[in-house]
Computed example of a mutant assay.
Amino acid sequence: MPTAALEPTRDDRSILSLQMDAIHSSSPASFLSVIGASLAVYVYWSADIAAGLLLWFACIFAIAATNVVTAAMRVRGMPESWTDRTWERFVCVMHLLSGLTWGIGGGWMLSIANEQQALVTIAIGLCAVTVSIPSVVHQTAYNLFHFPIFWCYAVGALFSSLEFSWVVAIGFFLLAPFATLVGRDLGRKLVLALRLSIENKRLAERLEERGAALESANRELEVLSTTDPLTGVANRRRLMSFGRAAPASCAVLVVDIDHFKSYNDAFGHVEGDVCLVAVAEALRSSVRPHLDLVARLGGEEFVVVLTETTQDTAETVAERMRTNIENVHASGSKRIRRVVTASIGFSVRSPDRPRSFARLMEEADAAVYQAKAAGRNQVCKAITTRARRIRA
Rank of each mutant, 00 (worst) to 15 (best):
A4C: 03
D11G: 01
I15P: 01
H24L: 14
S27L: 02
A29T: 13
S30K: 03
S33E: 02
I35V: 15
A40E: 08
V41Q: 03
Y44M: 15
D48L: 14
A50E: 14
A58W: 10
A58G: 14
C59S: 15
A62Q: 11
A72V: 07
P79Y: 09
P79K: 07
T86L: 03
F90K: 04
M94G: 00
L96R: 03
S98E: 07
G99H: 10
W108Q: 07
A118P: 11
I122Y: 10
G125S: 15
V131A: 11
I133F: 14
I133E: 05
L144M: 13
F145W: 06
F145C: 07
Y153D: 06
V155C: 07
V155F: 15
S160C: 12
S160D: 09
S165Q: 14
W166Y: 13
W166R: 10
W166Q: 14
V168G: 02
G183E: 05
D185C: 03
L186K: 02
G187A: 10
G187V: 09
V191Q: 11
L192Q: 11
L194P: 01
K201C: 03
A204F: 09
E205Q: 15
R206D: 13
A213P: 05
E215L: 09
S216W: 03
N218P: 00
L221K: 05
E222H: 10
V223E: 13
T226R: 15
P229F: 08
G232M: 10
R236C: 06
R236V: 10
R237Q: 11
R237D: 09
R238N: 07
R238P: 01
G243S: 12
S249F: 03
S249A: 14
C250M: 15
A251K: 04
D256H: 05
I257F: 02
N264P: 07
G272H: 05
D273W: 04
D273G: 04
C275M: 08
V279Q: 00
A282V: 06
L283M: 09
R284T: 05
V294Y: 04
E300I: 02
E300H: 01
E301I: 06
V304A: 07
T309Y: 05
T310N: 09
R320F: 01
N324E: 04
S333V: 06
S333E: 13
I336D: 01
T341S: 09
A342E: 01
A342C: 11
S343V: 00
R353M: 08
E363M: 11
A364E: 02
D365S: 08
A366G: 03
V368G: 00
Y369G: 00
G375D: 01
R376K: 12
A382L: 08
R391M: 13
